[in-house]
Design a protein around this nucleic acid. Structure first.
Length: 329
DNA sequence: AAACCCGCCAACCGCCGCTCA
DNA sequence: ATGAGCGGCGGTTGGCGGGTT
């Protein structure tokens, strides 16, 4: 019955919309006559039924076509954050929490990117969770007495990685706040990349020019990072490669400066979640690799970096799965 | 029981980048 | 080359419910 009445509404409003279109640009969201605030069950039902029938997209015109007195953006948000069938309900698990912390350290407030690594979770949910829980924890951690004992240092920062550190504020001297300082909050495209294989653990050199990936799935073995350190020899670029987790830890263990680089939007693409692998493969051979701001010694052995001192009881290996979606629970 | 406080989170807002005509 | 239209993103707001006084 709802659908029948919807049909009439759609026909009526579509006419108006078309008229508006011909007469010039209609306002994005004329607030007049639109419902605001919490969605009703009926509105949810209408929106869900419409999207199931016609698919999502064209959000601007969707409310008219579906007969909803809502802003298109509001419809999109409601669908993406609440009505989508693949939304994961329930509390953030401990593993998810760890992953959020790690990804936030790596990506900053780029919630959509972080959400992309957490199946079923929305950027809004993660953002809220961070703002209400993890962010406060990080703040408390920053102002904890331990932080005054050891002055914050870019080179001595340790990360939240162990369970005990998660459950209670770490005595890490480096505040998350200071880490966030160096993070871009807006996602931007980047054209350069460094490949850091998750495996093998042993250090090796890769000749990027000779790196050919027969199968796009091979890209899963690599994580691109926007570093600016490299070694160029005779137009060839070689990379010292390391276990991905170690590299990540080393990066954000070293403070905000090291986080001030671009993260590849295609990071999740690399993990086989998109069809653009071929493009990436192509870009690998086309894009020049940018110089990295790291010193050579650091690249020669991450594990000897001062960022990873012996006091850091970080089980890097145990967290490597966080970078491999196949390993996710 | 009422008033107040506080935390959570759904929803809104404004900006930005991409696409296309 | 340019600008409108649109989708997407991150920051912020405000309603609601639970806890405390």
């Amino acid at each position: 019955m709802v659908l029948f009445s919807l049909h009439f509404t759609v026909l009526e409003i579509e006419g108006d919309s078309e008229k508006e279109r011909r007469m010039g640009r209609s306002p994005c969201c004329s607030k007049e006559g639109l419902n605001r605030g919490t969605w009703t069950a009926l509105e949810d039902e209408i929106l869900t039924a419409y999207i199931k029938a016609h698919g999502q997209g064209k959000w601007r015109s969707l409310p008219n076509r579906a007969g909803l007195k809502r802003c298109g953006k509001s419809c999109r948000l409601r669908w993406l954050n609440y009505l989508r069938p693949d939304i994961k309900r329930g509390n953030i698990s401990h593993d998810e929490e760890e992953l959020i912390i790690r990804l936030h350290n790596l990506l900053g407030n780029r919630w959509s990117l972080i959400a992309g690594r957490l199946p079923g979770r929305t950027d809004n949910e993660i953002k809220n969770y961070w703002n209400t829980t993890l962010g406060k924890r990080a703040k408390a951690q920053a102002s904890s007495p331990a932080s005054t004992e050891t002055p914050p240092s870019k080179s001595t920062h340790k990360e939240l990685t162990t369970e005990s550190q998660i459950d209670e504020p770490s005595n890490s001297p480096q505040s998350t706040e200071s880490k966030i300082q160096g993070i871009r909050t807006k996602a931007t495209r980047c054209s350069s990349k460094v490949l850091v294989p998750l495996l093998p653990a042993a250090t090796q050199d890769i000749d990027i020019n000779n790196l050919t990936l027969q199968d796009p799935s091979e890209l899963q073995d690599y994580q691109p990072y926007y570093l600016t350190n490299h070694q160029e020899m005779d137009n060839k670029t070689t990379f010292q490669t390391h276990h991905g987790t170690e590299v990540l830890d080393a990066f954000y263990s070293c403070g905000p400066d090291f986080l001030n680089f671009e993260i590849n939007d295609q990071m999740q693409t690399i993990n086989g979640e998109s069809e653009e692998n071929n493009d990436i493969n192509k870009n690998l051979s086309e894009d020049p690799v940018q110089p990295l701001p790291f010193d050579d010694a650091m690249f020669k052995d991450w594990t000897k970096s001062p960022c990873l001192n012996d006091n850091a009881t970080i089980d890097l290996g145990s967290l490597a799965f966080l970078l491999d979606p196949d390993e996710w629970p």
